[in-house]
Structures are given as C-alpha cells and as structure tokens.
C-alpha cells in the first residue's frame, strides 16, 4: 500500500515537471514586477504563498500601483479567478474519494495546470489519488514561491525599469491572456464592449473604475448575446482549459 502511494507521489512529481519548468519565467517575472510596483520581497512571497494564482497576482500588482480601493483590488482578483469555479465543479466528482480534510487542502492547489493534468489523467481512465494530486501540486507550489523570491531579489537590482519596458510588461501580459481566450463563444464582441466601456470610463470617471465598468459591460453583453434556455452542468463545465 505504501509502495503504491510512493509510486503515485513519484508519478505526480514527474507529471509536474513540464509545468514547473514552463511556469518558472512567470514566477521570476511576478517577483520582479512586484518590487517594481512598490511591494517588498516578503509581501511578494506572501502573495505567491497564499493566493497562488499567477494571473490574478499580476492584476493585484497592477491595481496596487493605481492606489485602487482595497475592496476593488480584492474583487478584481476574485473576478479573474472566476474560472476556478468551473474547474472546481468539474474536478469535484473525480476526487469524491478524498476525505473532507484532503479536499479542503486539494482545492487550495487547484491552479490551471493542476486542473489540466488532473483532467488529462482522468481522460486516460486513471483514478486521481490524493498522493498523485499532491505529488503534482507541491513541486509546482514551492517552485512558484522560490521563483517569486528570486525574481523579487533580482528586481531590486534593476536600476532603470522604464528603459527595460518593465512597467509595460503587465499590459502585454494581460493582452496575451485576453488573446488566449479567443476561441470562447462571443469572445470578440465581449472584448470590444469591455475595451470601449473601459476606455470611456477611464476618461469620464477615472482609474481604477474603468476596470469594473468595462468588465460589467462585457459580461452584460455576453449575457444578452447568449439567448435564453438552460444548459446541463456537464456541458456547462466543458469549457476547456486556458493557458493562464
């Protein structure tokens, strides 16, 4: 039994290798941009260790820089992480064998690659054990924290972030994320509606309200375009995984 568990942990760690390597530049980038946006090294590390969500950590950084109201920063983080609700609903039945404590821990680590790998394993007809799940999750989690610290220490050494374009990497990153969603239904009208409303609000009301106003317009537009009717949850959660 314990031999089997060790094998499962090892398999999880092997499965985590590609995403650990793939995410490394982003952990370093987050750390460097965090100090560039005025955070301390320990605050950047705290953010990676407790939120553990790359895209929304970047959003948090961006809004810290604009002196947005705290509730608005937290709300924007929540909104960018919204896709996890679909992951969570999808993965729930596949980890039904976990104890309540194991589920409580497992959901904390449900980042995009964790979901993708768990889905892939499940597609292959293999069961998802807690040992495999944590073997996959922990290397990714601890490397993310280490990369954040390294990036933040390195970021402190950069003397002219403007010349290196550091202050503009966040918009480029967000734009790339937006483009990554382009196969979703009604992506183009949603993005145009959000973008135009955001620009209008930016000039009329001012930052950081453009984020909420723009997002609301895009979301409302998506709801209007969708038409009426109902979807069964299975179809609703077959949304695919984004590379976020």
């Amino acid at each position: 039994m314990s031999f089997d568990r060790n094998a499962q942990i090892r398999q999880g760690m092997r499965d985590s290798l590609t995403v650990v390597i793939g995410a490394a530049p982003f952990g370093l980038l987050f750390g460097a941009l965090a100090v560039d946006n005025g955070m301390s090294v320990s605050e950047a590390v705290l953010m990676s260790a407790t939120m553990y969500a790359g895209a929304s950590q970047m959003v948090g950084l961006d809004l810290f820089g604009t002196h947005a109201a705290p509730w608005l920063i937290v709300f924007s983080i929540f909104a960018v992480n919204f896709r996890h609700i679909l992951y969570s609903a999808t993965i729930g039945p596949k980890i039904a064998g976990f104890s309540v404590a194991q589920k409580t821990i497992a959901f904390f680590f449900l980042v995009d690659p964790q979901f993708a790998e768990a889905e892939r394993r499940s597609e292959q007809g293999k069961s998802i054990s807690f040992a495999w799940y944590m073997g996959m999750a922990l290397p990714f989690y601890f490397s993310w924290i280490c990369e954040t610290a390294l990036g933040a220490l390195f970021g402190n050494l950069i003397s002219d972030p403007h010349a290196l374009g550091m202050d503009f990497l966040l918009p480029i990153y967000f734009l790339a994320l937006v483009m990554g969603f382009r196969r979703r239904r009604n992506w183009f009208p949603v993005v145009i509606a959000s973008g135009l409303a955001s620009i209008a609000a930016y000039y009329i009301i001012g930052s950081p309200w453009h984020v909420s106003v723009g997002a609301l317009f895009g979301i409302a537009f998506a709801a209007i375009l969708a038409g009426q009717g109902q979807l069964p949850p299975q179809e609703a959660t077959e949304q695919g995984v984004e590379n976020v």
Binding site: A79, V80, F174, V190, S212, G218
Partner: peptide, 9 residues
C-alpha cells in the same frame, strides 16, 4: 465572459 472582460478592461 468574466475573465476576458476583466482583463480586456
């Protein structure tokens, strides 16, 4: 639409 709308904004 939430993530794309927030990020586009």
């Amino acid at each position: 639409a939430v993530p794309a709308a927030v990020l586009a904004s």
